[in-house]
Design a protein around this nucleic acid. Structure first.
Length: 289
DNA sequence: CATGGCTTGAAT
DNA sequence: ATTCAAGC
């Protein structure tokens, strides 16, 4: 029984939404004086200041990283505000973050099916909504495109003029686009709206990727952070994968990815595509292969 | 002891 | 059912 089947439709519109340093944002909303400050959320602060589990972008500029101890963070960034995660029965209690995530899900699920992928990540299937928009209000007929949507990053779109937003506006609204690209453009408009609603109603920022499947959407959401969105046109996919380190792919970040590199010399998805399914199954068995 | 603890999904 | 890998 094959494990990974091709998707039944290759023109779905999928978005992956990822909250920016989410635990920090939750604490900043609770304590607004922390906004705009270098800050981090820490668990168990008794041993070397505790372990960082979320770091604000202001703190990242100083080189503060997740999995540093609180004491190390203070060394590189003496001004940093360390917030302790709540503790219940001796354990870190993430429930307030889980609940904050639910607020976001409630908003994101307004335009399509919504799948919670983790405490701070969500996949959206916007296919139906995008098709509907394309049918009765295609982007090329819109006189105004939202300011947020026009700030989208479009993979493979060359920057020519001075204002990249003009490139995006043109890409989103060009009438000679393929059907798939038009669907993605609609998806990007919808996601821009949703992200704005999330900000207005929860005060949280997030980043998003818009693509034809979950893998690419997830990949894209991490490319431009924080508070930005990235679109993956069909035509950009092959070039993207050719040079993509396999370690960046979900499922291949661990031992299997390491084995691919060391045992088979596979470093990029492009390399991996040189191998036939049969060859991979010889090495890894019928299922893993 | 020193990222910890937890969840999810796949393999067996 | 149990174990293991992966990622948050």
């Amino acid at each position: 029984m094959p494990v990974a089947r091709p998707e039944s439709s290759d023109s779905r519109v999928i978005a992956h939404v990822d909250m920016d340093c989410f635990y920090v944002q939750v604490e900043q909303r609770k304590q607004p004086s922390l906004r705009g400050q270098p800050a981090a959320v820490v668990q168990y602060n008794s041993w070397q200041g505790g372990g960082l589990i979320a770091v604000s972008y202001e703190a990242r500029k100083f080189g503060v990283k997740r999995s540093m101890r609180g004491d190390e963070a203070k060394e590189v960034c003496p001004e940093i505000h360390l917030v302790q995660v709540p503790v219940a029965r001796g354990k870190a209690d993430l429930n307030s973050y889980r609940n904050a995530g639910s607020e976001v899900v409630a908003i994101l699920s307004r335009r399509g099916r919504c799948e919670r992928a983790s405490i701070d990540e969500v996949y959206l299937d916007l296919t139906i909504a995008a098709e509907a928009m394309l049918a009765d209000n295609p982007p090329e007929c819109l006189e105004t495109i939202s300011e947020e949507a026009v700030k989208s990053h479009v993979l493979g779109l060359e920057v020519v003029g001075t204002d990249p937003r003009e490139n995006v506006r043109h890409w989103l609204t060009r009438s000679d686009a393929s059907h798939r690209d038009k669907l993605l453009a609609c998806g990007a408009l919808i996601v821009a709206e949703l992200r704005l609603q999330v900000l207005e109603e929860t005060e949280f920022t997030c980043s998003a990727g818009i693509a034809h499947n979950k893998m690419l959407a997830k990949l894209a959401s991490g490319m431009n952070k924080p508070a930005q969105q990235t679109l993956v046109p069909f035509s950009s996919i092959s070039k993207l994968l050719e040079t993509l380190p396999i370690k960046k792919m979900k499922q291949l970040g661990g031992k299997l990815g390491t084995s691919l590199q060391i045992d088979l010399g596979v470093n990029t998805v492009g390399d991996l595509l040189q191998f036939s399914e049969e060859k991979l199954q010889e090495y890894y068995g019928i299922n893993t292969g």
